[in-house]
C-alpha cells in the first residue's frame, strides 16, 4: 500500500508476513534470536493497533474532506451572491485543526511503539540501555561545553542511555534554532541539528578542552582565544587544517589529544563528512555530530508492524556510534 492507494480506499489488512532482519553476518543468529524472543511477541498487538490507526486516519480524512468541501461550497455560493467575502487564506487555516484531528490516531500509534517496543529494541545492546522520548540531557551542562552556537530555542528528541564496553553513553537528538530578523519579517533559522553523544572517560582531567571546526587562518591570526579558552597549537598539520583546539590547560590538552587520538578523530570526521566537534570537560567527552537525519524513527506506517526494519535500522545506527568508541579507543585503558 502507498499513500495514494490508501486515500483511494484500498483495503487495510493486517500484514503478518515478515520482512527481513538485516545485520552483519557474524551477529545475525544472535540478532534473530533476540528478535524472536523479545520483539516478535509484540508484533500481533501492534499490527492490530496499526490497522486500527490507519482505518481511523482514513475515516477522519474522509470526514474532514466532506466537511471542508461542504464549507467550501457554502462559501463559494455566498461569495458569488455577494453576501460573504472571505479570503482563501482563512480556508487554509481552517484545514489545520482537521489535519491535526485526522493525524491523532497515527501519532498515538507512533508514541505507543516508542514507549513499548523501542525500549525492548535498545535492551539488545545491553541490559542497562534505556530509550526515552521524555528524558533529555541537561541543557545547562551542554552549554558549559562551550560548543553550542548562539540559539534562542532548544528542542530535544529521542534519548538513549547505556554502557558499552565499560564506557557510559548518553545520546540525545537536539535541534537549536535562532530568530533571525529579516527586512520585513522574523524567520526561525536552524543553527544546529544533530546528535549529542556524551561518553565517560577513563582519563581524569580538570581543565576544559574543545576541538572545533577550523575557523580559518584570518580569524586565528586576529584572535588566539575561543570563549575564554586559549589556542593549543598541535604538531599534526593535517589535524590543524581540519580543527582548531582551545583549552584552559595547555598540558592537559596535549595529554588528552595524543597523536593517536588526533588521527582517530580525523578518521571519525571523515565518516561524518567533517561535521564533528568535541569537548573534554567535567570528566566527560562530549561529541557533537551535525546531521540532518532523524535517528531512531519508525519506518513507513504502510508496512506491517513487524519492527524488523526498525530493529535493523537502529542496530545499524547504534553500531556506528559504538564504532566511534572503538575508533577513539575509549574502551581501552590506554592513552587516548
Amino acid at each position: 500500500m502507498n499513500p495514494i492507494s490508501f486515500i483511494l480506499g484500498a483495503p487495510i489488512k493486517a500484514q503478518r508476513q515478515p520482512q527481513r532482519l538485516r545485520a552483519e553476518p557474524e551477529e545475525l543468529v544472535q540478532f534473530k534470536a533476540y528478535y524472536e524472543e523479545h520483539i516478535e511477541p509484540l508484533t500481533r498487538k501492534f499490527e492490530n493497533h496499526r490497522v486500527a490507526s490507519l482505518k481511523a486516519l482514513r475515516g477522519r480524512l474522509y470526514t474532514s474532506l466532506g466537511i471542508l468541501l461542504g464549507l467550501a461550497l457554502l462559501i463559494l455560493v455566498f461569495s458569488l451572491s455577494g453576501y460573504l467575502d472571505i479570503p482563501w487564506v482563512f480556508f487554509i487555516v481552517l484545514c489545520l485543526p482537521f489535519g491535526w484531528w485526522s493525524y491523532r490516531p497515527l501519532k498515538r500509534y507512533k508514541r505507543d511503539v516508542k514507549q513499548e517496543v523501542f525500549p525492548k529494541i535498545f535492551r539488545y545492546f545491553g541490559p542497562d540501555f534505556i530509550f526515552s522520548t521524555s528524558h533529555n540531557m541537561s541543557l545547562t551542562q551542554l552549554k558549559r561545553s562551550k560548543l553550542l552556537p548562539g540559539y534562542d530555542n532548544a528542542k530535544f528528541d529521542d534519548y538513549v542511555q547505556g554502557t558499552y564496553k565499560g564506557v557510559e553513553i548518553a545520546i540525545n537528538e537536539l535541534c537549536l534554532t535562532k530568530q533571525v530578523k529579516r527586512e520585513k519579517s522574523t524567520e526561525t533559522e536552524t543553527v544546529f541539528r544533530g546528535v549529542m553523544v556524551q561518553l565517560s572517560s577513563h582519563k581524569r582531567f580538570k581543565g576544559h578542552t574543545v576541538v572545533v571546526k577550523n575557523r580559518g587562518g584570518l580569524v586565528n591570526f586576529l584572535s588566539s582565544s575561543f570563549k575564554r579558552l586559549n589556542r593549543v597549537k598541535l604538531e599534526d598539520p593535517r589535524f590543524e587544517k581540519q580543527f582548531d583546539v582551545f583549552s584552559s590547560d595547555q598540558i592537559e590538552a596535549r595529554y588528552l589529544l595524543t597523536l593517536g587520538f588526533m588521527e582517530r578523530l580525523q578518521s571519525l570526521a571523515n565518516l561524518f563528512s567533517g561535521k564533528i566537534q568535541c569537548a573534554f570537560y567535567e570528566d566527560k567527552l562530549l561529541i557533537m555530530l551535525q546531521s540532518g537525519d532523524n535517528r531512531f524513527e519508525l519506518g513507513s506506517i504502510f508496512n506491517g508492524a513487524t519492527f524488523e526494519y526498525e530493529f535493523s535500522q537502529i542496530n545499524r545506527e547504534m553500531k556506528q556510534l559504538f564504532a566511534m568508541i572503538e575508533v577513539l579507543k575509549l574502551d581501552q585503558n590506554i592513552g587516548f
Partner: peptide, 13 residues
C-alpha cells in the same frame, strides 16, 4: 609519563 610527554610537547612548541 603521559603527562610528562604532554608537557614536553607544549614546551617544545
Amino acid at each position: 609519563e603521559e603527562h610528562i610527554s604532554a608537557a614536553r610537547r607544549f614546551y617544545n612548541a
